[in-house]
Design a protein around this nucleic acid. Structure first.
Lengths: 179, 179
DNA sequence: TCATCCATGTAAAAAGTTACATGATTTT
DNA sequence: AAAATCATGTAACTTTTTACATGGATGA
């Protein structure tokens, strides 16, 4: 249910519509949902029912009607409570490439080098994309002063992750050749 | 459906029972499933029906009856086909701690330092666990010569990942204090 | 004109987790 | 004597994804 708290957090920063939240989630690399409607709109109506949010319908001349949701006092309290009770959670490793590598090791070990080269290439591309995304977000000054240290850390984490994967792939290829 | 191919890969290495597969998955850090029965036993009966596996029922005097599954020629072909067609997939970032950090940044930025310290501690513990797990697996000589390079790479990847997280947490804490 | 974006919502399916059920054996 | 492990399977639930449905506005 942490998507509910994520949405509360997003709305704490700034009131917005379901569609905006969807884009926010899709644009971020660290919010791990696909940004599908089903979860977001359901969460919004549910949390409105619980009084954690209020949605204001905005009829506009040009463009479709939209609902702007804002967090309520009750919502802020619920959110704070969750954060206070939350313990830091360490990640499991969820890397589909490691599965590919594992299965290939069992059945087609000769394909390992090829897979590593592909992985490497895609990581380089991904690093460019992520750096550009971060650069753009920083230019937009999307987050307020207090939130900034946390946001910057998240960006660093994302870059560190992909960079480590890239270095690992290089080392792995080097070791393969040496044999 | 990649759990099916993972199971095929496991059985390519060595015929075994559903229960054995379950333990194999639970013991590994890179196979990202909980190792719940539902998926495994379902996959086994399904793939047996497709002729990719054959299960041999083994009645034993002491202990319960078990079914040993082995991969068929058809299964080997299906597996090879999948590996040949597979393109290296780069991972999304699925780190619940980054969500916690994001939400905390929005609502309770003063908790960031505390969360980082907790994260750091758990990562140190996790590194010990993973190193021990790998040491034990290597001692058991579980994998055959051909598969070994791939398996060693996977172990390196796991350690690199947690170590990078730990270094990141240290840097993040240092930067926080400096402000 | 055709595709994409804005905007809200629903339906159906797939993937994954937890818990239940059973029963023998082994370990504490 | 109680708890854990071995071993197979099912039921119920949660989470997540993909696709469908609608319709105006904007852009190539």
């Amino acid at each position: 249910m942490s998507i509910n708290y994520t949405i509360l957090g997003i709305l704490k920063a700034k009131p917005m519509s379901g569609y905006d939240i969807k884009k926010e989630i899709q644009a971020s690399s660290y919010l791990p949902w696909s940004g599908n409607n089903n979860q977001i709109y359901k969460a919004l109506t549910q949390m409105s029912g619980e009084g954690l949010l209020v949605g204001e319908t905005l009829h506009r001349e040009n463009g479709p009607t939209k609902k702007i949701y804002r967090i309520t006092e009750k919502g802020i309290q619920e959110l704070s409570k969750w954060i206070d009770e939350t313990k830091a959670e360490i990640p499991d490793i969820k890397n589909p490439f490691l599965i590919q590598l594992y299965v290939a090791s069992m059945a087609e070990p000769d394909r390992i080098a090829d897979l590593l080269v592909q992985y490497r290439e895609q990581l380089e591309e991904q690093l460019l994309i992520q750096n550009e995304l971060i650069r753009r977000n920083k230019a937009e000054k999307k987050y307020d002063q207090k939130a900034l240290p946390g946001i910057d850390m998240i960006y660093d984490n994302v870059i560190d992750f992909y960079r480590t994967q890239l270095e690992w792939a290089d080392t792995a290829l080097y070791k393969l050749k040496k044999e």
